[in-house]
């Protein structure tokens, strides 16, 4: 395996308005460090892809942004959202997660009906007015409405994997978060379902800031505006997607995207 200089990196300047930003973010699982000194700015209404080999720390980084790692890891550094460092102790993590929604690698709908999956999320967040319209809107936004409108009361678990994942997206956006984190949302799905979700993302970015972890380089190249390349827990390169894939600045990035990695 080639050795790369992990301490050097190339981070492009972001001039657009920033939705969320990390400063010197480190994540530790016990004594093992998974993410090193990550400094990334995520612009509003853009799709940012995090790429890298397995174990590169990209998922760990993503899960730290909405404090979902609290239980299992120690996260140090700053996560700046709404001009507040939300990685502090006295922060209301429930409100953080409410504003920063998440879609997971494996679809995880609740064992409830399709309708109830979304209505439940709405009710729990006090959004009980116009329930039917809200459910319909979020299903439409997730491009699932036409497929399920006639069977809203059937169990969500009877849907196909791709439909379940879009239901999870619908559930996440129903509560109107500000940022949407997606942790390899298509890795468990077939290519057609994956494509549908990519199309959905392009629609969603009009209203949301999306940060997506993917191990699929084509997906990153196709669907994202910016790309960050992670290697062994370090952010090696962060640039406009087009630039990163056509003129990578770092040798590690170049090797990774050309398939000569490791």
């Amino acid at each position: 395996m080639n050795k790369y200089t992990l301490s050097e990196n190339y981070l492009t300047e972001i001039t657009d308005p920033i939705a969320i930003e990390t400063k010197h973010l480190n994540v530790f699982y016990g004594k093992k460090q998974a993410t090193f000194d990550a400094n990334l700015k995520f612009p509003k209404h853009k799709i940012t892809a995090l790429i890298g080999a397995s174990g590169s720390g990209k998922s760990t980084f993503l899960r730290s942004l909405n404090r979902l790692n609290d239980e299992i890891a120690t996260v140090t550094g700053e996560i700046k959202y709404q001009d507040i460092d939300i990685n502090r102790k006295n922060i209301n993590v429930y409100e953080v997660r409410r504003q920063i929604g998440m879609v997971f690698q494996h679809p995880n709908p609740f064992a409830k009906s399709i309708y109830e999956n979304i209505a439940f999320a709405l009710r729990q967040n006090g959004m009980t007015d116009n329930l039917d319209q809200r459910v319909e809107k979020s299903l439409k936004d997730a491009a699932l409405w036409d497929e399920v409108k006639d069977k809203l009361t059937t169990s969500a678990l009877s849907l196909s994997g791709g439909q379940q994942q879009r239901l999870c997206i619908a559930r996440a956006i129903a509560v109107q978060p500000d940022i949407l984190l997606m942790d390899e949302p298509t890795s468990a799905l077939d290519p057609i379902s994956s494509r549908k979700i990519e199309t959905t993302m392009q629609e969603l970015k009009k209203n949301y800031t999306i940060i997506i972890v993917t191990h699929n380089m084509q997906q990153a190249a196709r669907a994202s505006d910016l790309t960050a390349f992670f290697h062994l827990g370090h952010v090696i390169e962060y640039n406009r997607t087009k630039k990163l894939f056509t003129t990578p600045k770092m040798p590690a990035t170049e090797d990774y995207i050309s398939g000569h990695f490791g």
Binding site: Y81, Q82, D83, I84, I86, N90, I91, N92, Y94, E95, V96, Q99
Partner: peptide
């Protein structure tokens, strides 16, 4: 308002 909500404990807490 948003900052208020992020900084203060809520029902969930």
């Amino acid at each position: 308002k948003m900052q208020q909500r992020l900084l203060h404990p809520s029902k969930a807490t």
